[in-house]
Simulated scan of single mutants.
Amino acid sequence: MTRIVLVHGIAQEVKGAETLLAEWYPALSDGLARATGTTGGSRVARDEVSMAFYGDLFRPAGHRGLGTPEWDASDVQDGLESELLLQWWESASERESRVAGPGAAARLRTPHLVQRALNALSHASFFAGLSERMMISSARQVRRYFTEPGVRAAVQDRIVRSVTDRTEVIIAHSLGTVAAYEASYAHPEWPDLALVTLGSPLAVRNLVFERLVPPPTNGHARWPAPVKRWTNIADEGDIVALSKELAPSFGDRIRDLGVHNGAKAHDVRPYLTARETGRAIAEVLRA
């Protein structure tokens, strides 16, 4: 029955498919209504929408402490984890005046520099209200996806199990856009579908783009065969979607659109309620 598959991003490990669907579905309906000029909800029934939930794969095992393990700056691993936090910091400081920038600090991985990044990011809109250990957990999820083949395969399997022969569109957010892209490429037998990516880091060089499977060649990624339409939507202030446009890296068949999400630039709900998102989905459903 699934016409629309939703794929979430990082930091959802203590939720579940139904919990997230309860958050996403009203926003999805509002976006469709805004795009089509209708009232009274969505053109798609809730039982035609499914959430490819994978957050539990990152949920830590039980331990004696409370909540997330008490990580601090010294626990941030060299390489992708530290580089990602530093890049988020730099991007946030460029877009939000309340976030102090790295200035002339040497880009060396030291606990002190990582701690400065964590302190600064606590004032960024995306991370506001999150503890330091949750920020570290977010970077760690990205690192684990790219460096642990078992985790990567398990995340994509959740998407594969959600796609049916009636699926018309996959809507993915944040890290979920990476998993949706890779799963789509790996399954050329899937029916023709549309891909809508929200706040995507897919084109972020040196951190994400070069780590994709299949690997890009000569600076260009390969096109997933089942995808007949691809709309990428990003807010200029979204510090996770560091590269706002995907077309230069994935091909000019992609339609890159900008939206304004207010204070929560990376939040999926304003992405879904945007007219641009609703229109991209409605076009596919009408076809």
Rank of each mutant, 00 (worst) to 15 (best):
R229C: 04
S29V: 03
T277Q: 01
V5C: 03
V151A: 07
S243I: 12
E132V: 13
A280P: 00
W88Y: 13
R107H: 14
A128M: 10
E81M: 10
A52H: 10
L28G: 02
A124W: 06
P149G: 08
P188S: 04
L212T: 05
Y181W: 11
T147M: 03
V178E: 01
S184P: 01
T277A: 07
R144S: 06
G129D: 10
E94K: 12
T147Y: 05
A27D: 05
N218V: 15
H112M: 10
A287C: 04
I159W: 08
S174I: 05
R140W: 03
G150N: 12
L285E: 01
L246V: 11
A153P: 04
A105M: 15
T38R: 15
G31T: 05
R279I: 12
W89I: 09
D267G: 13
S97T: 11
A180G: 05
A183G: 01
A287K: 09
Y271F: 08
E210T: 06
S174M: 04
V163W: 00
R143T: 14
A104Y: 11
V208R: 02
L193D: 00
N119H: 07
E132S: 11
V240Y: 06
A106D: 14
D252N: 13
V151C: 10
E283D: 15
T110F: 09
E90D: 10
R64K: 08
V160S: 02
L113F: 15
R211S: 15
F209M: 03
S97N: 11
S184T: 07
Y145E: 01
Q156K: 15
G62A: 15
A287H: 07
N119K: 09
V268F: 01
Q87F: 02
W230Q: 00
L113S: 13
I171K: 01
G251W: 01
F53K: 02
H266K: 03
G237Q: 07
G237M: 05
H260C: 10
L118T: 09
E70C: 09
W88V: 08
G16S: 15
W71L: 12
E276R: 14
T38Q: 14
A274N: 11
A139G: 12
A280G: 02
V240L: 06
V49D: 00
Y145F: 03
